[in-house]
Write a protein that binds this DNA or RNA. Structure first.
Lengths: 149, 149
DNA sequence: TTGGTTGCAAAATGTTTGCATGACC
DNA sequence: GGTCATGCAAACATTTTGCAACCAA
């Protein structure tokens, strides 16, 4: 009755957001599920490890993960970002919404934050760069979480 | 009489901001000058190319650039960031102030923007994550500039 | 069937490190 | 003179690519 998502509903969700003309392979669906179940963005390596953990025996190639993420990104359902404190990219589903994170410089945990001051920024950009068409943005807050002070 | 900076004053600026106990080598000063003269953040490769262009014959090693940038970053006078659209890190001087940029997804130019809505964010973070101590942040706007629409 | 997708291995890229030489203080 | 910084080359980590085998439509 609310918007909480249960595992049994994955098929619906996938059907709803699956990009036009995309083949539904086992690997792509697995990656989609892992991204969907995660609270925070994941790196390719983290996705790889979860794939192995979830499905034990089976083999997955890193190249498949990267190619799938790139395809999802081009299709507009995945957002890629890079934190200046890490040396790899991270990916998250962006099914209509988006989030920002506070990142702990010590333990590297990511804490979602709600506020998005994009309206202020876009106003400012419209004034100083009237011909710039904004399509996206990224905001991260760095610092130290409770446990790492 | 104003805060515009002239080349003849580099020595003063460098003296003022040079980190405690840092050896003043030719390479480090050159890198500092290049960062200081740039309107936008630069990658290690861009710094390298400018070093060669500015000083023609002389040799510079990439490792020196990276080590210098890392040292500057640790000393707090350089900020490192990574754009999700690029595959390398970029660096800029942060002598007390900081900037944000609108980045064109087509030509990759970076346009400085003034607004920084950090007060809103920090308020929100203080409420949802009362024990998170903010030390920095990063904000980028993506889109298409006038020439690339 | 067939064209898109995968796995594997190799390549490419950006960045870091070890070590002997060299330069600053 | 002693210590720290540099240049070079090799190592490293992540990501990309080529290609044959495979599988969803």
């Amino acid at each position: 009755m609310n918007c909480k998502i249960h595992h049994e509903h994955y098929d619906e969700i996938i059907d709803k957001f699956w990009p036009e003309g995309f083949k539904k392979t086992k690997q792509r669906i697995d990656i989609f599920k892992i991204l969907h179940a995660s609270e925070t963005p994941l790196s390719a390596a983290e996705i790889y490890n979860q794939l192995l953990a979830d499905t034990s025996k089976e083999q997955y190639a890193f190249s498949t993960i990267y190619r799938t993420l790139l395809a999802f990104e081009k299709a507009g359902i995945v957002t890629k970002s890079v934190l200046s404190t890490e040396d790899n990219a991270i990916y998250e589903l962006s099914l209509g919404t988006h989030k920002h994170y506070a990142i702990c410089l010590s333990c590297h945990k990511k804490f979602p934050i709600q506020a998005c001051p994009m309206h202020i920024i876009s106003e400012e950009v419209n004034q100083t760069l009237p011909d710039f068409r904004i399509t996206g943005h990224q905001l991260e807050v760095y610092g130290y979480c409770r446990d790492c002070q």
